Simulated scan of single mutants.
Amino acid sequence: MTQRVNFLLIALFSMLLAACSSSQQGRYAMEHDAAPLRKPTELEMQDAIVTPVVKSASASRPYEVRGKRYTPMLDETGYAEEGIASWYGRKFHNYHTSNGEVYDMFAMTAAHKTLPLPSFARVTNLDNGKSVIVRVNDRGPFHEDRIIDLSYSAAYKLGYYRQGTARVKVEAVTLANSAPRLSYIQVAAGSTLANVEALAFQLRQQYHVPTNIVEKDGIYRLRLGPIKDAAEAQAVLEKLKQNQFQNAFLLYSE
């Protein structure tokens, strides 16, 4: 009987240790972050579209991490800062961000310690001049030498996904200071230029919008545009989808 009690106590103690160990691992399944197993698509590397947003009340409250207190901005207008950017990927993919959205490492998003959530920012790589517009929807990075954490797609577009960090300039973007962008619609792609040109002629006659053909790696991509009015671009896209071009999608000028 005594041996049985001792065995049960040992088993119970082992279960408690396992539970403690599991809780210490935290909310993430991966212990260390890693890059995804594929590169972002052309569509995934488009800048975030600046839209009207409702700021998260819960994400606007002061908070504390590792003994340091942070006070989020109530108005990001005019914010600009230079420093080090990093990126985060698979470890955090599909987990909730600080404002309740779901993190997607292939979306144009970012984490910032004090910018309002959500908000938008232009991030420029100071070493190569490349820039992206991201939607800020998370808190971090909580390292003294870093000012912003970008999604994998954003870091890929800025050209620093291999080295992990880069010197950047971060500037808040609002509806008031965001430049209007031209719309394009990618309709089709093929390896035979003559066929793509014939389709371009047909679509120009049918939809009365300009066309352009972009070649990359031996593939010719047919796009309608530029279209200045966003509503018109959306209307043309819907017509294309109804007329056998179900895979057509919108693109925007840089």
Rank of each mutant, 00 (worst) to 15 (best):
F7W: 12
L9R: 15
S14C: 13
S23W: 12
Y28F: 13
E42T: 01
D47I: 08
A48R: 00
S56F: 00
A57V: 08
A59W: 00
Y63D: 04
E64Q: 07
E64S: 10
V65F: 08
K68M: 05
K68V: 08
Y70G: 06
T71H: 13
G78Q: 10
Y79S: 11
I84G: 06
A85T: 08
A85N: 08
R90G: 11
H93Y: 11
H93A: 08
N94R: 15
S98E: 07
G100M: 04
M105S: 00
T109A: 05
A110P: 07
A111Q: 03
F120K: 07
V123N: 11
L126T: 10
D127M: 02
N128P: 09
V134S: 02
V136I: 06
V136G: 03
N137R: 00
N137H: 02
R146S: 13
D149M: 02
Y152Q: 09
Y156F: 10
Y160Q: 05
Y160K: 03
R162P: 04
T165R: 13
K169P: 14
L175Y: 00
A176W: 07
S178H: 15
P180D: 01
R181D: 01
S183V: 07
Y184C: 06
Y184N: 09
Y184D: 08
I185F: 05
Q186N: 02
A188M: 05
G190M: 07
A198V: 14
F201S: 15
L203D: 03
Q206V: 11
Q206P: 03
H208C: 14
T211K: 10
V214I: 11
E215V: 04
E215D: 07
D217P: 01
D217S: 11
R221F: 09
R223P: 02
L224A: 08
L224V: 05
L224C: 03
L224S: 03
K228S: 15
Q234V: 06
L237D: 07
K239N: 14
K241D: 12
L250K: 02
L251G: 08
L251P: 00
E254K: 07
